[in-house]
């Protein structure tokens, strides 16, 4: 029995009630769990099953579907190595999820990035501020309902129109 199978069996056994789904795609395993249980599951995975390395922490936005946000924890057991992805769906426009910085100190900046880019409220984070955008920025750029912010491109035919309204700097 490979370590991954052991992991899945142990998760099924211990967290059967919060385990929603196990997805296999291109040889990668994703475990979908209730977002409220993220801390407990990750703690179990880290301390009992040896997934000590948090390779990546990110999220994506499924707008307009619900539940809208999915938080992704890419975990790794360095002996093997065995990779496991834990996914937490989050419903609503301003969802909350518990911070995992206590378990994985490396999650500090990625969680700030989630707050900045998706507007997720990370509860229990030691220093929740915007990280990439200016602190007075409005909106959360990586949300799907946030526009890309495209500006019209200047070509020969519309050069003068745009030139007139382009805010050129003064001395």
């Amino acid at each position: 029995m490979s370590h991954l199978e052991t992991t899945l069996a142990a998760l099924q056994d211990k967290f059967g009630d919060v385990l929603e789904q196990v997805v296999e795609f291109r040889g990668e395993t994703t475990v979908v769990i209730h977002a409220a249980a993220n801390l407990a599951v990750l703690q179990f995975l880290k301390e009992t099953l040896g997934y000590t390395f948090l390779a990546d922490l990110t999220a994506y936005d499924d707008w307009p579907e619900e539940p809208r946000f999915k938080v992704i924890y890419q975990l790794r057991n360095l002996f093997g190595p065995v990779s496991l992805r834990v996914k937490c769906p989050l419903a609503g426009d301003a969802p909350q999820i518990a911070s995992v910085t206590g378990l994985y100190p490396a999650a500090n900046w990625p969680e700030r990035e989630l707050f900045d880019m998706f507007g997720l409220q990370i509860t229990g984070h030691p220093d929740l501020r915007r990280i990439l955008m200016p602190s007075d920025w409005q909106g959360h750029p990586l949300r799907k309902d946030y526009p890309l912010g495209y500006e019209e491109v200047q070509f020969t035919f519309n050069f003068d129109d745009i030139d007139k309204k382009k805010p050129y700097a003064k001395e």
Binding site: F25, A55, I72, Q74
Partner: peptide, 16 residues
């Protein structure tokens, strides 16, 4: 979804 890890000169460059 896939996650690929490579070794960049600076460390693990992963693409989700």
């Amino acid at each position: 979804e896939v996650y690929v890890a490579t070794e960049s000169p600076r460390g693990e460059l992963g693409v989700f």
